[in-house]
């Protein structure tokens, strides 16, 4: 019987990867951000998950505008990182869990979701950086990967309500999986930031705090508005919050906050990290 152990939520700014590559974790600019991760790493060492289900958004590596899925689920035996246009060092490849991927896909379609399914899927920094932050310096990732990409690029974006429902359907699929795997869920991106337009550089600390305070105990509070409302309050790229909302939905039990960290700024971004432990309502 599989178990959903918890959810890790973190920003995924490309500059974090560059800071790791240069070993800047203890520099004054970076330390307040990286200091958020030892509690996450310790929890992972104890919890020992086998599979990571990651809700993230592709940044023009795997998906172009010729075909832009609203929700895409990876079902590949292996995923690779690749050059995103800046020639940065590449992240290690990721082993997939195709049988569990197809189980999730079957459950989603059976629950009236219509995901795109991908047997070839490059994964970008928004997935790899959270892995590197969680398992720094490991030779091989200790978990298999199921990537779930949410469109945050081209409007109309899915609603927060729909993303929470997607996550809940994924959680129900994981609970009905008969394998022995222990599963961790990731939601990546955010929090408030905006790269484009005259409002570039916008950050909204009160809104971010509201999101952090409600994500665990009351995720519905984050779904009473539309995606454009999130953009107004969190900035154009702050809408990556949708990944967090979906990942929260996949935690189907009682959640307990283990740790959180919030630091401004990392690059143009209000950077946040949170770990929610998931306790099954019915013991496995």
């Amino acid at each position: 019987m599989s178990r959903i152990l918890g959810g890790i939520f973190t920003s995924h700014v490309p500059a974090i990867g560059a800071a790791i590559a240069k070993g800047l974790q203890q520099e004054p600019y970076w330390k307040p951000f990286f200091d958020g991760f030892p509690p996450v790493q310790n929890w992972l060492r104890q919890a020992k998950p086998d599979v990571a289900v990651v809700f993230y958004n592709d940044h023009g590596l795997n998906f172009f505008l010729d075909k832009m899925p609203t929700f895409a689920v990876g079902a590949a035996p292996r995923y690779e990182n690749a050059d995103e246009g800046w020639g940065l060092p590449l992240f290690k490849p990721f082993e997939g869990a195709p049988e569990l991927s197809w189980h999730i896909i079957e459950h989603l379609v059976g629950s009236d979701f219509d995901p795109t399914t991908c047997q070839q899927m490059l994964v970008d920094h928004s997935l790899a950086i959270p892995f590197e932050l969680s398992w720094p310096g490991v030779e091989q990732w200790p978990v298999k990967l199921i990537p779930i990409a949410i469109n945050t690029v081209q409007h109309p974006l899915p609603s927060p309500r729909r993303c929470l429902a997607l996550g809940r359907a994924v959680g129900a699929a994981l609970e009905s999986w008969q394998g022995p795997e222990k599963i961790v869920v990731f939601g990546t991106g955010g929090l408030s930031h905006q790269l484009d337009g005259e409002r570039a550089g916008f950050i909204n600390i009160p809104y971010d705090r509201y999101c952090l305070d409600h994500l665990g105990p009351d995720p519905e509070a984050l779904t009473r508005q539309g995606s454009l409302d999130i953009i107004e309050q969190a900035g154009s790229q702050g809408v990556e919050l949708l990944n967090w909302i979906a990942a929260r939905g996949a935690l189907t039990g009682r959640v307990r906050e283990i740790t959180r960290n919030y630091h401004v700024p990392i690059s143009n971004t209000a950077a946040a990290t949170m770990l929610l432990e998931n306790e099954a309502l019915v013991p496995a």
Binding site: L65, Q154, H155, D196, R199, I231, G235, S236
Partner: peptide, 21 residues
């Protein structure tokens, strides 16, 4: 509309396809 904030919708996606490609 949201002040100072581009909304990349279908019309923008059509208009910008060549540049984004």
């Amino acid at each position: 509309t949201i002040a100072g904030t581009p909304i990349f919708d279908g019309a923008a996606a059509n208009q910008g396809y060549a540049l984004n490609a």
